[in-house]
Amino acid sequence: MIKAVYTEKAPQAIGPYSQAIKAGDFLFLSGQIPVNPETNEVVENDIVVQTRQVMRNIQAILEKEGLTFENIVKTTIFVKDLSMFATVNEEYGKFLGDHRPARSTVEISRLPKDVLIEIEAIAYTGNR
């Protein structure tokens, strides 16, 4: 079974895609950018503030499905400047605690709405 997942606690899609798709025992989260869902605006142009907002957006989507960061098995982080990696790593880690999913990090020249970071994730929904 495949179903689209939507929550008002995360930004609305800005194109023809879903916030997440549940397929079998997995939840595939679309890349989340640092948009505050209450204002529908990009947050401050600061990598710490933007990383925190992205992680809160991911958390909202996970919670919609009764999941936590512990369910994440893989993330991909896209950053505009890899020199920000240590800061991103620190903020990302605060949300994950001791959980360590597989991850890739890629520097990219431009992201939607000219943000500094985007993160996509895959979560395992089985064994709940």
Score class of each variant (00 low, 15 high):
I14M: 14
N40V: 15
Q19G: 04
T87E: 08
T87K: 01
P16L: 06
T39W: 07
E118S: 07
P112W: 10
R56Q: 13
I77N: 00
L67G: 09
R100N: 12
N36F: 03
M55I: 04
A4L: 09
Y6G: 01
T7R: 04
K3L: 06
Y124C: 07
D98F: 10
E65G: 04
R52K: 13
A123Y: 12
T125N: 07
A121P: 04
A10P: 09
I72Q: 08
V54K: 03
E65W: 11
L29I: 12
A20P: 08
K9L: 13
A20D: 10
Y17L: 08
D46W: 06
Q59H: 09
Q59T: 04
D25S: 13
S18Q: 15
Q12M: 07
E38A: 08
E90F: 05
V79E: 04
G24L: 12
I14A: 15
L62H: 07
Y17K: 01
A123M: 10
Q59N: 15
S18W: 11
E63W: 10
F28W: 12
L67T: 14
V54P: 04
F26R: 00
V48R: 08
N40H: 05
T75F: 10
L111S: 00
D98I: 12
V48K: 07
G66L: 13
F26L: 12
P101G: 08
E118R: 00
E38V: 04
H99M: 03
Q12L: 08
G126S: 11
G97K: 05
V106H: 06
G24R: 13
D25T: 14
T7Y: 09
T125I: 15
N57F: 06
Q12C: 04
K74R: 11
P112Q: 11
L96E: 02
N40M: 13
I72V: 15
E70T: 09
I117W: 02
T76R: 09
F95K: 00
N71L: 08
E41V: 13
R103H: 14
I61K: 00
E107Y: 06
P101E: 10
V49M: 06
E107L: 09
T105N: 03
A102Y: 05
I14S: 11
A4N: 14
T68K: 06
D46L: 01
R128Q: 14
K80G: 00
T68W: 13
G15R: 13
T105H: 01
E8C: 01
V88I: 15
A10C: 15
N45I: 02
L67H: 12
N57I: 03
E90D: 08
K64Y: 09
L96W: 03
F95Q: 01
S109T: 07
L67C: 11
E41P: 02
I119L: 09
I2F: 15
L29E: 03
E70C: 03
E41Q: 10
F78R: 02
K9E: 14
L82M: 13
R100D: 13
L67Y: 10
R100L: 14
R110E: 13
S30W: 00
I117T: 01
V79Q: 02
R56M: 07
D114Y: 09
R103D: 02
P11D: 11
E120V: 06
Q19N: 05
E63I: 05
I47R: 01
Y124K: 01
I58S: 06
F85M: 07
I14H: 14
Q50E: 11
P34S: 02
P37W: 06
M1Q: 12
I122Q: 01
